[in-house]
Every structure is written in C-alpha cells, then in structure tokens.
Amino acid sequence: MKTMSVKTNKKPLSAFQKRKKADNLAGYLFLLPALIAFVLFIGGPMLLSLALSFFDYNLIQPLEFVGLKNLKRFIADPQVRIAFLNTLKFLVILVPIHCILGLLLAFAVSRVRSGRMRSVYRGVIYFPTIVTTSSVAIVWVYMFGTDTGVINYFLRQLGGSNVPWLTDKNVVYLTVALFSFWKFIGTAFLYYFIGLQNIPDVYYEAARIDGAGTRQIFLRITLPLLSPTIFFVVVTNMIGVFQIFDEPFIITGGGPGTATKTMSLYIYQIAFQQMKTGYGCTLAFSIFLVILMMTLLQFGGQKKWVTYDYE
C-alpha cells in the first residue's frame, strides 16, 4: 500500500525539469570520453601503481607480495632524501624564474605598440618551447663543455677563464636554470600574454585619466586582474618542476655525483634501469602525494589573493 501511495504522489515532471534532466544527461555524455580516458590512462594506472608498491615485480617473473618492504626501504633510502632535496632546490630556483620573468616578458611585449613586432617577439620567445627537449639539450651540453664548449671559448676570448658549467655541483644549477629559462619560459609567457589581452582596456584608460604611471598600472591593475593566470602558471609550473626529468637526464645525468638527481630521475633509474617496478611505484606514489598536498595548499591559499571578478 505504501508503494502505491508513493506512486500516486509522484508528480509528472514539468517542461523545465524535463529540459534540465536532458541537459544533465547531455553534460554527462560530453564528460564520458574524458572520464573513460581518465580512468584508463590516469586513475587506473594510479591505483595500479599504488597496488604494485606492495609487490616485487621485474616484468618477467611473477608478482611477489612483499607487504611494506618497499615502504621501509623508501624511509631508509638515503637516495630518496637526496633526490627530494634536489627537486626542492630546482623548485626554489625554477618556479620563480618561470613565473616572474615570464610575467615581465609578457608585460613588456604587450606594451610594444607595433603589432608586427609584437608577433616577432612572441614567436622568438615561444619558439624554443616547440622544439624537442632532448635534441636541443644535447646541443646545450656541447655548448657548456668546460674545455671544448663554445660558451667558454668566447669567455676565454674575452679574457675570462673556463666556467665549470657541468662539473661543479653549484654552478650546474645555474646551467640547468639557463637552459630551462630558454626552453620553457615560452609557456608561462604565452599564458601571461593571453591573460593580459583579456584585461579590458577601460581599466587602463581610467587609470591613465587618473594619472597613474606604468608601475602603478602594473601593480594596481595588471597584477590583481592577472591573478587567476598567475595562480594557474604557478601551480602548473610547480607540478612540472616536481616532475623535472629531461634537463637532469640529458644535460647532467643527475650529476656531478648526485647534485642534480631528481625524484623523477631516481624513479626512472629504479623502475626502468634496475627493473624494480614495485619500489619505483612507491617512489612515484610518494611524489604524487607531495604534489597533491602542495596543490591543495595552493588552492586553499588562492582565496586570499586571486581575483576572479573583473566587474
């Protein structure tokens, strides 16, 4: 009887509700391809990676359950501490370089009056980004050679002495930073440049009428209105630097010694050179957790400084 009463109490859907339901269904269908791709290529492998970290596996022999052995090794492994520390060093050096210099470059280019020159600058700055990292990194390695490199050749011609670009554990960070700036600044620059184009001119015009200078305009108008882009660039850059692999792998090989051995490089060595897939997954999951925590913190903090309301 109760069921009957429920049935009888159910009201037919209004035209608006029907439309809303159909819209929802369409929305979910649009999401479906991305969801399938996420489950297959990101979510599924992540869960598999977590599960594999409890096993020993070399791709050839059967999986062997080892419980927390990989986690214990992770805690005791001195190479993990070295790799994490080096990754943090890269984070401190590279994120500000990309985020601050990228912004300044974008601001400078956006102020160029000639449209043609603006396009030229944009092309020149973005061009290195589209070149394959490994091919240009090899060229940079030759350029940075201590005795035979072209950079030191010119330094010697100018009366200077050889700089140990790749053979000094401190200078090597400058070397990687120089390469990274040249290679990847274009991405941050482009985001900022697009962000700057989206700021309505009326704000600038109003500011100029009120007598504001370039510095004031940049600090009071550009920066606040560009804050969503800045936030995006900082988050994506931070994630990218946490996963930094190409530069140390090709330019320094993680050296000298272990000076530039990053977590991604260590994961590669363990999982693909030593074929310890289980421990490799433990390492990969640890870096995933750190990135997740840092990103959540940033999302929490963004409420205090990111402005989404232009009006």
């Binding site: 090899i138 390695v141 201590t146 005795d147 790749l166 053979t167 320094t252």
Partner: peptide
C-alpha cells in the same frame, strides 16, 4: 687529466 663531463666524447678528444 680533464674533469670528466657528461656528453663529452673522450675518444674524440
């Protein structure tokens, strides 16, 4: 001897 360096072909030297 030179300081060993990644990417330098020592045979070529």
């Amino acid at each position: 001897a030179p300081v060993p360096q990644t990417g330098v072909d020592e045979i070529q030297l």
